[in-house]
């Protein structure tokens, strides 16, 4: 089973959630052999929208707090508003598609999972794209927008560099020196 985890963190980003179910992205996912997509939708997500061109029409089921969609019997997409066990979901996935929040990106990077960061172009004054672009420049992630997601998905995930573990002693050593402890 090839899994993808899509997360928007504690913000809202319905454009990203809907981008997953555009025909081109669905076709790309099918051709790449993905068969399960877990989406954490965040606030303000009303209902699953599908391009009318997707055929045969996907089957939509409601189960507890989640919505489950099956396309062609091959691809299952599950929608949940929030996630209790974010870490477990990341660990089980083969690819994570995340909004550009530093917290979400770092958690995925620390777990050494391939990551595509989707920049929200509607937030123009937002400095979050700064971080996403830097992480892409350093080769840790691929950056995308909602409209380029279909192409970015095809990129070779094995070419991404693993994110190094931070040295936890750096800051204490520095501060001890500043304060005159050493």
């Amino acid at each position: 089973m090839k899994r993808i985890f899509v997360t928007v963190g504690t913000t809202k980003f319905p454009k990203l959630v809907n981008a997953i179910t555009t025909e081109q992205v669905i076709q790309t996912l099918l051709s790449l052999g993905y068969n399960f997509v877990q989406i954490q939708t965040g606030r303000d997500f009303s209902k699953v929208e599908f391009d009318s061109v997707v055929s045969p029409p996907p089957e939509i089921k409601l189960e507890a707090n989640s919505t489950i969609v099956t396309v062609n019997d091959k691809l299952t997409i599950k929608y949940d508003t929030y996630f209790e066990n974010f870490e477990k979901e990341v660990e089980e996935s083969d690819l994570v598609i995340s909004h550009a929040g530093a917290g979400s990106c770092l958690e995925v990077l620390h777990k050494r999972k391939p990551l595509i960061v989707v920049i929200n172009e509607d937030l123009m004054d937002n400095h979050q794209s700064e971080l996403a672009e830097q992480l892409q420049k350093d080769g840790y992630v691929y950056c995308s927008t909602c409209s380029t997601l279909k192409e970015v998905l095809k990129k070779d995930l094995s070419k991404l560099r693993p994110y190094p573990k931070p040295d936890d002693s750096l800051f204490p050593r520095y501060l001890d020196k500043c304060m005159g402890f050493t």
Binding site: A102, H127, E130, L131
Partner: peptide, 16 residues
């Protein structure tokens, strides 16, 4: 008093 400021991880090009 010593003031130590650590700019956020999000800031790669511009200061807050």
């Amino acid at each position: 008093t010593r003031i130590v400021f650590i700019e956020s991880f999000c800031r790669t090009q511009t200061f807050s």
